[in-house]
Simulated scan of single mutants.
Amino acid sequence: MRVPISLMAVLAALVAALPVPASAEGGPAWEACVGLTSTPEERVKACSTVIDTRSESGRRLAGAYCNRGHGLTEKRELDAALSDLDEAVRLAPDYACAFNNRGRVFSFKRDYDRAIADYDEAIKLDPSLALAYSNRGESRYNKGDLDGAFADFSAAIKLDPNYATAYTNRGLVYYRKRDMAHALADYTMRIKLAPGLLAYIDRGNVYRDSEQLDRAAADYGEAIRIAPTNARGWRNRGMIRLYQGDNKGGLADYDMALQYDPSDVFSWNNRGQARMRLGDKQGAIADFRKALELRPGLPMAREALQKLGAG
């Protein structure tokens, strides 16, 4: 059975800093362009109207380019986003939003040095911008600079003690450093501020790797409650149940995991393990063969089939 040892959390993509408060004088397009609740599609459309009609100028026009760049980044239209953000920087070189958002584009392009340079500039222009510290921490983390990432995430938390994503990211650094107590504290704060599927999965993973299996199972159960059609909660709890010798419970969880994600090779393998332990030889053989179909040569599946005389 696979025993993953790395935390499966993903450093979250962060929402851009908006340039100026929305105001009635800007009209509906301006409101949607800078509105906090606008979807990426709505933001791009509205900001395009502002830009094309030249209804704004100066810093506010830079804001429209900055926010359209953000919307395009969220849509992963990175080259178009970069063009917009370059224009925002040209129009307002003292504007932290443009540098922060352009840094995110470079980060998505995995050009972490240029991303960090832009975040440096954003922080220089606005030292209170917690978002830029957290974004810079993400790029530093992706470069393997755990100490630099830790310092940035801590700075973001100091500036904004309610910044849930910064706790998640710092918790991941603690986890990588094998400081489980502090990782748990940060993930617990994340859950307090913004409970969700990944928050419980992340903390459950730390409990799992700390051999606190009942607590891990409880967190994965919360993940299932929050997102019952997401396979991650089911397959993580299934693994814990197999660890604990609850083969029927593990089988049931992997049934659900495979219902929602039939492409996960390890769910097939682990369900095969549960079936083999329960004496369902043919069912186990079928699952191990499916695992090998998805990943030819998978050692644990191949060895299990040999043990069952079906290798």
Results as ranks from 00 to 15, higher is better:
residue 1 M to N: 05
residue 1 M to Q: 08
residue 2 R to V: 14
residue 4 P to T: 15
residue 8 M to A: 14
residue 9 A to D: 10
residue 10 V to W: 14
residue 14 L to T: 13
residue 14 L to D: 10
residue 16 A to R: 01
residue 17 A to W: 06
residue 17 A to E: 11
residue 22 A to Y: 01
residue 23 S to K: 09
residue 30 W to K: 00
residue 31 E to K: 02
residue 33 C to K: 01
residue 35 G to N: 00
residue 37 T to H: 00
residue 39 T to P: 00
residue 39 T to H: 01
residue 43 R to V: 02
residue 43 R to M: 02
residue 44 V to R: 00
residue 45 K to C: 02
residue 49 T to K: 13
residue 50 V to P: 00
residue 52 D to R: 08
residue 56 E to Q: 12
residue 60 R to S: 06
residue 61 L to Q: 02
residue 69 G to M: 03
residue 69 G to F: 04
residue 72 L to D: 04
residue 72 L to G: 05
residue 72 L to A: 09
residue 73 T to L: 15
residue 74 E to R: 07
residue 74 E to S: 11
residue 78 L to I: 07
residue 80 A to H: 09
residue 84 D to C: 04
residue 84 D to M: 10
residue 89 V to Y: 00
residue 91 L to M: 04
residue 91 L to H: 00
residue 99 F to C: 02
residue 101 N to D: 05
residue 105 V to S: 05
residue 106 F to Y: 11
residue 108 F to A: 07
residue 108 F to L: 14
residue 110 R to V: 13
residue 111 D to P: 05
residue 112 Y to A: 03
residue 113 D to S: 04
residue 116 I to G: 01
residue 121 E to G: 09
residue 122 A to H: 03
residue 126 D to E: 06
residue 127 P to W: 10
residue 131 L to E: 09
residue 134 S to H: 06
residue 138 E to V: 15
residue 142 N to S: 10
residue 144 G to P: 04
residue 147 D to T: 15
residue 147 D to N: 13
residue 148 G to A: 06
residue 148 G to T: 10
residue 151 A to W: 04
residue 154 S to W: 09
residue 156 A to I: 13
residue 158 K to N: 08
residue 158 K to F: 13
residue 165 T to W: 15
residue 169 N to I: 13
residue 169 N to Q: 07
residue 176 R to F: 11
residue 177 K to T: 04
residue 180 M to I: 15
residue 181 A to M: 11
residue 181 A to Y: 06
residue 185 A to L: 05
residue 185 A to W: 08
residue 189 M to E: 12
residue 189 M to H: 08
residue 192 K to W: 08
residue 195 P to S: 05
residue 195 P to A: 12
residue 199 A to C: 02
residue 200 Y to F: 15
residue 200 Y to T: 10
residue 201 I to T: 05
residue 205 N to V: 11
residue 206 V to L: 09
residue 213 L to T: 06
residue 213 L to M: 11
residue 214 D to T: 12
residue 215 R to P: 05
residue 215 R to I: 13
residue 216 A to F: 14
residue 220 Y to I: 13
residue 222 E to D: 12
residue 228 P to Y: 01
residue 229 T to E: 15
residue 230 N to Y: 08
residue 240 I to C: 05
residue 242 L to R: 09
residue 243 Y to A: 13
residue 244 Q to F: 09
residue 245 G to H: 03
residue 245 G to T: 07
residue 247 N to P: 06
residue 251 L to D: 11
residue 252 A to K: 00
residue 259 Q to M: 15
residue 260 Y to V: 14
residue 263 S to Q: 15
residue 265 V to E: 01
residue 266 F to K: 06
residue 267 S to Y: 08
residue 273 Q to D: 15
residue 274 A to R: 01
residue 274 A to V: 10
residue 277 R to N: 05
residue 279 G to L: 04
residue 279 G to S: 03
residue 281 K to H: 00
residue 284 A to L: 05
residue 284 A to D: 07
residue 285 I to Q: 02
residue 286 A to F: 09
residue 290 K to V: 02
residue 293 E to Q: 09
residue 295 R to Q: 11
residue 296 P to T: 07
residue 298 L to H: 01
residue 301 A to K: 00
residue 302 R to K: 11
residue 303 E to G: 00
residue 310 A to P: 06
